[in-house]
């Protein structure tokens, strides 16, 4: 610092020993924190190992931002620390969580209102789309403020999107699975909706590589809605998730993966497909 004033030796000793009142103590502390010279003169007064550990610890605690609760939980479950930093910073993820939670909650509310009524169709309409919308949100804005840096970093945009995708799925799927368990009707239904959900995801990713995530999510949502609405015209409510249809979804998923692979090997654009 540019000040020529420094903490007097006696004052410093009193500070280190904790003998100063709050006001003088605080001003000494503020100066010492900014003045390398005075910090150096406290060194002989304090156990050096303690001092080194203390400063590093304090700086770390003050400077590195706290992780949000869901990320801290994931950390407990073994999420690597660098990935946690990336997820904590993704504002788009927060949107995904909010969207996912909102859809799940509104669906639960609907279930209460309609208890016993015709519940299957709305569930089948919404449940497979929840992860799709979550993943689309995980792309982040086209004008993501950090986009330029994400693209040119060795970590890679594709990998970041996939990490976010997994994070969204991990946080959104339990909701929907839980809701499925409370559905009236045959027990296999609770798992059957995962078929279209799993097929729609690669479809979304493949479409996104052509038209971007926003248009892609709209197309996928419309397409799936059409399937469910079609089933309402006299077909059994379970029709969209019956075995034959599941095979079609499987084929769709396989096709999308082939498209993705082909595009990532041919595209001259830097930064891979997504």
């Amino acid at each position: 610092m540019t000040t020529t004033w420094h903490v007097h030796d006696d004052l410093l000793a009193a500070y280190v020993a904790g003998r100063l009142d709050a006001i003088v103590g605080a001003s000494v502390e503020q100066h010492v924190a900014r003045c390398a010279e005075c910090r150096a003169s406290t060194t002989p007064l304090v156990d050096p190992r303690l001092l080194a550990r203390g400063w590093d610890g304090i700086r770390d605690a003050v400077e590195s931002p706290a992780l949000p609760l869901p990320v801290r939980l994931a950390r407990r479950c073994g999420l690597p620390e660098p990935t946690a930093v990336l997820l904590a910073a993704a504002t788009s993820l927060r949107t995904a969580w909010v969207v996912g939670a909102f859809l799940a909650l509104s669906f639960a509310a609907l279930a209460v209102v309609l208890a016993g009524g015709e519940l299957l169709a709305p569930f089948l309409l919404v449940a497979p789309l929840v992860p799709v919308i979550g993943v689309a949100a995980a792309y982040g804005h086209q004008q993501d403020p950090l986009e330029t840096l994400v693209v040119t970093a060795p970590y890679g945009r594709t990998r970041l999107i996939l990490v976010r995708t997994v994070a969204v799925l991990a946080s959104v799927l339990p909701f929907t699975v839980l809701l499925g368990l409370f559905l009236p009707g045959p027990a296999w239904l609770a798992a059957a909706w995962l078929g279209p959900a799993v097929a729609l995801l690669p479809t979304l990713l493949a479409l996104s590589s052509f038209v971007g995530p926003r248009v892609a999510v709209a197309v996928v949502a419309l397409g799936w809605s059409a399937v469910v609405l079609f089933s309402l015209r006299g077909l059994p409510a379970t029709w969209p998730v019956e075995a034959t249809q599941q095979l079609v979804y499987l084929a769709l998923a396989a096709m999308s993966l082939v498209v993705l692979a082909a595009r990532s090997s041919r595209d001259r654009r830097i930064g891979a497909v997504l």
Binding site: E63, S64, V85
Partner: peptide
């Protein structure tokens, strides 16, 4: 984001 948080985020992207 804080200044530190911003630079740290990029640092993670830089492995």
């Amino acid at each position: 984001m804080t200044a530190f948080g911003f630079v740290e985020y990029v640092a993670v992207l830089k492995e």
